[in-house]
Structures are given as C-alpha cells and as structure tokens.
Write a protein that binds this DNA or RNA. Structure first.
Lengths: 203, 203
DNA sequence: TTATTAAAATGAACACTGTTTATTATTTTT
DNA sequence: AAAAATAATAAACAGTGTTCATTTTAATAA
C-alpha cells in the first residue's frame, strides 16, 4: 500500500514544477519582479495552491538560491583540467566573472539580494554555497604549497580575493560604473582584473 | 510683485519637507520599506500631493542618493588632516568602512540598490558621487608622486581599491558572511582589511 | 468687495502585491 | 456507497505605486 509514498512523490513533483516555473520567470525578470500570481498562472494553478507547497515567497527564494549555487558549482567543474594551482585560481576568477555576466539574476540571488539570510545553515541549499567557498579556500591553500602567498593566512586571503571579485562584479551589475565613459566600462573591469592577477602573482 | 518667486520658494520648501520625512523614514527602514503613503502621513498631506513635487518614487530615490553622497563627502573631510598621502589612503579605507556600518541604508542606496541608474549624469545629485570617486583617484595619483604604486595605472588601481572595499562591505551588509562562525565575522573584515593595507604598502 | 481665473490639494479609483481562510472538489478509506 | 481525509480554489484583506476628476484655496481682475 504505497499510497503514502506516491503522495509524497506527487508532492515533490509539484514542488519541482513550481520551482521550475519560478526559476524560468526569475531568470528572465528577477525575484522581485516575479509574483506568486505569475508563477501560479504559469503552472495553471491558483495562487493559493503555491502556499500548500511553500511557506511563503522566501522559501522559494531559498530553493532558487540553492539551485543557483548548484549551477555555479557545475559551472566551475572544468577548473579541474588546469593543473597548476595558481593558474587554476586565475581561471576561477575568470569563470567567476563569466558566470556573473552570463547569469546576472543568479548572481543577484547568491550574493547581492537582501533576503532573510537567517536560514538554516544545515540545509541542503546552504551546502552548495559552502562548497563553493571551500573550493576557493582549498585552492588558495594549494597555491601556498606551491610557494605562492607566503606568510599569508589562507582564510583571510581567500575572503580578500572573493571580496575583490565580488566588488568588481557587483558594482558592474548594479550599474555603478557610470562614472566612467560608456566605452571604457567593460575595459575597466578587464584592466582591473588584469592588475589584480599581476598583484596576486607578485604576492 | 515677487509672488512667482515666493511660489517657487514654497515649492522648494515643500520638496525639502517631503525629502526630510522621506529621509528620516528611509534611514530607519530602507527605501523599499517606506511607502509614499508613509511619507504622506508623516507630513500630513495626501499621498497624491507627493506626486505634485516628485515625478515618482524613483525621483525621491535620486534625491536621497544625492544626499547620501553629500553626507559621505562630509564624513570624509577630516582626511585632509593626514599629510602623508598613503596614510591618508588607508585612513580613507577605514572611514569608508566606518561609514558603511554606521549608515547602512545610505551605503545601500549609494552602491548596492538596484534602481534606475539611468539618471542624468549632469545633475546636482550626481556630482557629489563623482566628487567622491575623484577624491580617491587623486589620492592614488598623489601616492604615486610619493613613490607608491609604481608602474600602475592610477585609474585602474583606484577602481580595484574601491572594488575591494566595496566587496568586503557589501558582503557584510548583505549577510553573506554566514559561512564563518558568528564570532569570527567582524574579525574577518578586520583581518582582511589589514592584509589589504599590507598588500598596498608593498605594491 | 466681489467675480473670475489659476494653482494646489485631495478622495477615490485602478491594477497590482503577498498571504489567509472558508468553501468546494477530489481521493482515499471504511 | 458513505465517511473521512486531502487538495485546490475563490474571495477577501491589507498593503503597494500611481492617476485623475473633483474640490478647496489663493491670486488676479472688475
């Protein structure tokens, strides 16, 4: 009598359906510009039904947040092909930027959006995020084994690197480069990243 | 017959009143959590009246955006007391962080918030922002005159410095330091900034 | 001072938003 | 086939930014 099991499967399926629609709408328009009614319409259910599967809009946020990090980690997998750890670190930076500008709504939900971040640190969704950060820290550590970053605490340096990358990306994403001529904006990011690479190399 | 002049004065006064209330509410609750009706109630006028003085909520955003930068520049004035340009740059970083955590809603509106940034680059409000950035660039240039940052393009380096500071501050403000233990979070920023200073000094 | 004109303020509405609840429709169990 | 449990919904609530026809207030002209 696997009726309970089937019910649970149906439930998960419905959650998945909702999340898929939410996801699609979200990537196009961003979290704030997608309403529960939009999602409901897309899956051809009433708005109230959504609330049978998700506590509120924020719970959908968490799920998408988790998905975004999953996508991010997948995006980073081919780093493994680069043998030299320092080169891999640089490649990681390049891919970080690529991800940012290819999936701006993801980046937003991952690192910028104000959202009740008082979530369960033990949840599935959160692990993907921790994994991403762990990868950076391990890579910095590995660099140290190869003679880079001497007399630098790897945790602190990792955060500093992340901050720098995030700073550039988020300023660009949130249109704070208007101080520069339009033609220079993209170049600014490039040159800045180049200089950053150089600084890291000489560290 | 200075009636037209007085009318214009009244108009500006009303704009000021609205802005002051908006400002107060905004600093407490943040832009998104302040409604036109809130502002209207505070100044004891009907919501529709606001629209006689501001095109929409975004125009109020612009004004507050400008005010924030003004406040920021004022906050930075006492940098002048530091003679050595490099020390002044470091002090600037310290004050940048101090401003961020003292006036988080300001920082938000200045550097993080998604808002139609397709504004008039020639407006009053914008100039304060440009001035702030100009100060950084000039300071970096001055450092170069004193032997710092050799073979580095000052514009690019300025942006890189800004990015790093913004990265640290905005990640903290938007609660993205949950990967670290609660007790370590504040220290992380401190240590990270310390390392940044060291790197800059050796550049 | 009164009538006319111009300006300012508003109440009410529109089309949205997230969310809750009482009601109805569908399944499962007895 | 009847009763119980589950799922889905329509309708409502309280809120949002914004617009517009109407009314109130102030300035000008007769």
């Amino acid at each position: 009598m696997g009726v309970k099991e089937r019910k649970e499967r149906d439930r998960q399926e419905m959650r998945e359906t909702i999340l898929q629609s939410a996801h699609q709408l979200f990537v196009d328009k961003g979290f704030d510009d997608v309403s529960i009614r939009n999602i409901a319409e897309a899956i051809e259910y009433s708005p109230a039904t959504i609330y049978l599967y998700f506590k509120d809009k924020n719970e959908i946020f968490y799920a998408l947040h988790g998905e975004a990090f999953k996508k991010f980690n997948e995006f980073m997998t081919d780093l493994a092909t680069v043998k030299d750890p320092f080169k891999r670190l640089i490649k990681m930076g390049e891919k970080y930027m690529e991800f940012t500008f290819k999936f701006p709504k993801y980046y937003d939900i991952m690192f910028i959006m104000q959202a009740p971040m008082d979530c369960d640190k033990n949840s599935e969704d959160w692990k993907e995020g921790e994994s991403a950060h762990c990868q950076l820290e391990n890579l910095v550590k590995e660099c140290q084994l190869h003679g880079y970053f001497k007399n630098k605490e790897y945790k602190t340096l990792s955060f500093l690197i992340w901050s720098t990358m995030h700073g550039m990306c988020s300023l660009a994403l949130r249109d704070r480069l208007k101080i520069y001529e339009e033609s220079e904006r993209a170049k600014m990011i490039d040159k800045s990243f180049k200089m950053f690479k150089q600084i890291l190399a000489e560290l």
